[in-house]
Amino acid sequence: YTAFGDLEVFLHGLGLEHMTDLLKERDITLRHLLTMREDEFTKNGITSKDQQKILAALKELQ
């Protein structure tokens, strides 16, 4: 049995499950992801397509 964390649930909701391992390897938490700047997305290997999905979701949360 494995409990999913906030990061996994957030990514799954956006259809971005493939990013879970990448972000965990880089010790990026959901809190960090929510406050990242555009250059940090790129530096951490997050594609512009995935970045757009994340940023759109963040706008909806605000």
Rank of each mutant, 00 (worst) to 15 (best):
E60C: 08
L23W: 01
L7Y: 00
E38R: 07
L22N: 11
L55A: 14
Q52V: 11
T29E: 08
L11F: 06
A57I: 03
L30C: 05
K49D: 12
D39S: 09
E40W: 03
S48C: 11
L22G: 10
E60Y: 07
T2L: 07
G15K: 07
E40D: 12
T20L: 14
F4D: 15
L61W: 13
D21Y: 05
R37T: 15
E8L: 02
G45A: 03
A3W: 08
I54S: 05
D27I: 00
K59Q: 10
L16D: 01
E38V: 08
L34M: 14
T20F: 11
E60N: 15
A57T: 07
H12S: 15
D27S: 11
I54H: 03
T47G: 12
L16F: 04
F41I: 06
Y1V: 10
Y1H: 11
L22C: 09
M19A: 08
E38Y: 02
A3V: 09
L33S: 01
F10I: 03
K43A: 11
V9P: 13
E17S: 15
R26D: 01
L23N: 02
L16C: 07
T35F: 06
Q51T: 13
E8P: 01
L58N: 15
T2E: 05
A3D: 15
D6Y: 00
D50N: 06
Q51V: 08
F41E: 01
T2Q: 13
D39Q: 08
Q52M: 08
E25M: 08
G13W: 04
V9Y: 07
E38C: 05
E38W: 00
E17W: 00
K43R: 10
L58M: 14
T42R: 11
S48H: 07
T47R: 09
E38A: 08
F4C: 09
H12P: 03
T35Q: 12
K43C: 08
D6P: 07
G15T: 02
T47M: 10
T2Y: 04
G15I: 00
L30V: 12
L23E: 02
I28T: 02
L23F: 12
L22W: 09
T29R: 02
G15C: 02
L30F: 12
I46Q: 01
E40F: 03
A3G: 12
F41A: 06
T47K: 09
H32G: 09
A57G: 15
L11N: 00
V9S: 15
F10Q: 03
F4W: 05
G13P: 04
A3K: 14
K24E: 04
N44G: 04
